[in-house]
Design a protein around this nucleic acid. Structure first.
Length: 778
RNA sequence: GGACUCAUGGCUCAGUUGGUUAGAGCGCCUCGUUUACAUCGAGGAGGUCGGAGGUUCGAAUCCUCCUGAGUCCACCA
């Protein structure tokens, strides 16, 4: 053996050895025919045969088959995202669990996959288009979808090959992509079921619309940023009103005051005349407790279609008020209701209108930019969110929330990680209905069909045969002989059905007069079904064999987006919890405890670490002394320390190996009893820590016991002739097994090295499938 | 405003049914290389476990309050 452990020359070789064994695939590790396992035998007859063949080469005799299923569904990384430390963290922890359970003899499946990451990916692609001088509006939706598909394909191997570099022992033969046809089919089935259960509805609500991204977002995807704004005080009939957004006045339908506000009692219920610059209008004065009499002047103008609070207020007073108008369009510009301000972007119109109000002597004062308020912004591009009315599809969450709280109460699912179980409950209890419509093409198109004959007011935008852009009402377009439904459907970019439009839910076109909705599902709607969607579309029998899955492991920051949705959809569709345990790992921070981000320039590229210190060092540094749900800072020194540990292990093994070559005259069983007692204690402790999800602690225990007990004490005792060789060899074998889930490459390459130098000394040929040590060993 | 989390040697963190002299890594100091490993070894300095009370035979650990830090959510035109 070399004097140093060289990760560069071993890792690829070892990974190939594992892959070639076929044992990432649990079918190849199933017990050979037995009487009481008929179902599994039939389901996996082919692979079992293959497995039997493999087991000849690899000698699985010593393997103890518990056959207990253990399944982890990998959180699918974005198909075309390069790996960051967060990915390395989940690979390290999940692979640790998987290898541990595989060694325990469990029927162990780690099912990998990749995510289409709807909006994220479409944006990256649009940036690329922009560089080419094009935009998404140059293509019909089908063509655009295909172009993004091809683009994702080009990069799809990146994520997988990088995870392999980290040693991930996932069953790649079962890998899934969120847009695989059978996954899409399951997602559509789910939607259909939700619709049949009465949980889907279409409603005109104010959505969080990003004019730049051109799509609505769910409430979870919105940031609130502190901003300094101007507060404009407008003359508003007999009132003075403070507002940050004078440009919305054309959409006002009322003034609201607090019901107990003495100043305004006489106006409540009256109509007042207001000068709107472009016209004079009468609006009603209403009373609502929502108004804070202390703020501004205690009177608020109400613009229902451009402000969430105003919208709710309007809902409460609907019967007394006229129908509101939308004055800002989806491109973020004012529309025909704004008279001469039409076409201006809202923030520019604001300045113009303020100026004109001042000229007209309607502006009493304007504060400087010192009014602190919070503005909703797009989490992606930071553009100010425009609350806009849009007919969207919503999912009623209440029945699913109740079922989820129920399984939490019954402890059918356990959450590991610093109070995140409480956070989950808090989320569930305050959850609003889920807007699942997205105005992008990169995703699963909603299986919603509109009969154009019954919905003549549908507006469409499409490219005609010559690539020319056409838009208008469907009924009018169809009167022209040039256009048929079919070619409109083919060139379709966008379809907007008015509120109240009739639709059917169907996977296929219900007839020739139908056009399909152009919106796609929120990415999280499909990934929320991931545990059952993957297993139902995996090998036959996988769902029955592995569902509910064992552990869902992920960073805590996607709790509301993903974990909560998986629980809700999983329990609603399958009737069972999708997983029995949730393990949250913390975020990796830099040495100062700051979040890593590209803009701060403090990111660590895991591949560079792998290159310099080895995949094992990276894995160990991330796991050691980490705690569920708590963040962890790492720096270069941590990788170095872990690399040194791998080298220490290598050299201790080298010592044992050299020791075995000379006959050992001192190899009696001196101190044998104490040695094995201690060794057994370590086995018990580490196994318990792993069972209890104390991964950081288990790693710490192994680090210290191996280095400071086994090396510093036991090896030194042996040199002095006070501890037998048998003990040392046995001890090394146990440590290699215990450490394998953490540092698989180093341990396996030592195992193979010992194999080569001392055939028949070890209990099996491949460490990866060697049984986990039990304290009954000696 | 609401919720959650954290506070342990210079730095980063372990320490979960309360139990002997509170641990590790990195850093620091002294010494050591014909020895498995200098990606190492031997030894050492360094902590009133944020503060104040309480429960207990016994508290870093449980309870209350306070202080400080962070995260998430909700927010007034």
């Amino acid at each position: 053996m070399d004097k140093r452990y060289d990760h560069n020359s071993t890792e690829d070789k070892i990974y190939k050895l594992w892959e070639k064994s076929g044992f990432f695939n649990p079918d190849n590790l199933l017990r050979k025919k037995t009487t009481n396992n008929k179902q599994q035998i039939t389901n996996n007859s082919k692979s079992t045969k293959r497995g039997a063949q493999k087991s000849k080469n690899w000698d699985l005799k010593s393997r103890n088959f518990t056959q207990k299923p253990f399944c982890v569904i990998m959180p699918p990384p974005n198909a075309n995202d390069p790996l960051h430390l967060g990915h390395a963290m989940f690979v390290a922890i999940e692979d640790m669990m998987i290898r541990y359970h595989r060694m325990l003899g469990d029927d162990t499946l780690w099912l990998p996959g990749t995510d289409h990451a709807g909006i994220e990916t479409q944006f990256v692609f649009e940036k690329k288009l922009k560089k080419e001088g094009k935009s998404r509006f140059n293509f019909d939706r089908e063509a655009l979808y295909k172009k993004i598909w091809d683009y994702v394909q080009e990069n799809s191997e990146t994520a997988i090959s990088q995870m392999k570099k980290l040693g991930a022992s996932a069953d790649w033969s079962r890998s899934k992509f969120t847009l695989d046809p059978n996954i899409v089919n399951t997602v559509l089935d789910t939607f259909k079921k939700l619709h049949e259960d009465g949980l889907v509805y279409r409603d005109l609500k104010l959505v969080n619309y990003c004019p730049k991204c051109g799509t609505a977002f769910s409430e979870l995807e919105i940031n609130h940023q502190e901003k300094n704004s101007k507060l404009y005080y407008l003359k508003y009939g007999p009132f003075t009103i403070a507002t940050t957004r004078p440009e919305t006045i054309f959409g006002d339908i009322a003034v609201a005051v607090h019901p107990d506000d003495k100043r305004y009692q006489k106006y409540i219920g009256q109509e007042i005349e207001v000068n709107y610059l472009i016209e004079k209008r009468k609006v009603k004065v209403i009373a609502d407790k929502y108004v804070d009499p202390e703020f501004g002047t205690g009177a608020v103008k109400i613009t229902p279609l451009h402000d969430h609070n105003d919208y709710e207020l309007w809902q409460r007073h609907k019967n007394k008020l006229e129908l509101p108008k939308q004055v800002i369009n989806h491109n973020g510009r004012l529309n025909q209701h704004a008279g001469k301000y039409r076409g201006l972007k809202s923030h520019i119109a604001r300045e113009e209108i303020a100026k004109d109000l001042e000229t007209a002597n309607l502006l009493t004062r304007t504060t400087k930019n010192d009014y602190q308020n919070k503005v909703s912004t797009c989490y992606r591009c930071n553009t100010a969110i425009e609350p806009l009315p849009l007919p969207q599809f919503f999912i009623k969450v209440k029945p699913m929330v109740e079922k989820t709280l129920n399984i939490l109460d019954k402890k059918q699912v356990k959450i590991h990680g610093a109070g995140h179980d409480k956070i989950l409950r808090h989320w569930l209890k305050n959850l609003k209905d889920w807007n699942i419509s997205r105005q992008i093409v990169w995703g699963i198109r909603m299986p919603i069909w509109y009969d154009v004959e019954k919905n003549p007011d549908i507006e469409v935008v499409f490219l005609d045969k010559n690539g020319g852009k056409k838009s208008g009402k469907i009924s009018e377009l169809l009167q022209d002989d040039k256009y048929q439904i079919l070619n409109i459907s083919v060139g379709l970019q966008n379809l907007s059905a008015p509120m109240g439009a009739k639709y059917i839910v169907s996977k296929n076109s219900p007839g020739e007069s139908y056009l399909q909705e152009t919106d796609t599902f929120d990415t999280w709607f499909s990934s929320g079904q991931w545990p059952f969607a993957t297993l139902q579309n995996s090998k036959k029998g996988d769902f029955e064999r592995f569902y509910p899955t064992s552990v869902m492991e992920t960073a805590y920051d996607i709790l509301p987006f993903w974990i909560m949705r998986m629980l809700m959809l999983g329990v609603h569709i399958t009737g069972k919890t999708p997983f029995r345990d949730v393990y949250f790992h913390g975020l990796i921070r830099d040495q100062k405890g700051q979040k890593m981000s590209k803009s701060k320039g403090n990111t660590i590229n895991p591949l560079e670490v792998v290159d310099k210190y080895g995949a094992d060092a990276l894995r160990m540094a991330l796991i050691i002394r980490s705690s569920a749900g708590l963040d962890k800072s790492v720096r270069e020194a941590d990788f170095r320390a872990a690399r040194n540990f791998c080298n220490k292990l290598w050299n201790a093994s080298r010592f044992i190996s050299m020791n075995l070559e000379i006959s050992d005259p001192k190899s009696q069983n001196q101190n044998g009893k104490e040695f094995f007692e201690k060794l057994n204690k370590i086995i018990t402790i580490v196994s318990k820590q792993l069972n209890d999800f104390k991964f950081g602690l288990a790693t710490d225990t192994l680090y210290n016991e191996f280095w400071h007990w086994y090396c510093d004490e036991c090896i030194e005792l042996n040199k002095q002739g006070k501890l037998g060789q048998t003990q040392l060899v046995e001890g090394l074998e146990v440590f290699l097994k215990l450490l394998h889930p953490i540092i698989p490459f180093t341990t396996e390459s030592i195992w193979q090295e010992l194999q080569k130098n001392h055939p028949n000394k070890l209990s099996s040929k491949l460490l990866m499938t060697t049984p986990w040590p039990t304290n009954n060993d000696k």
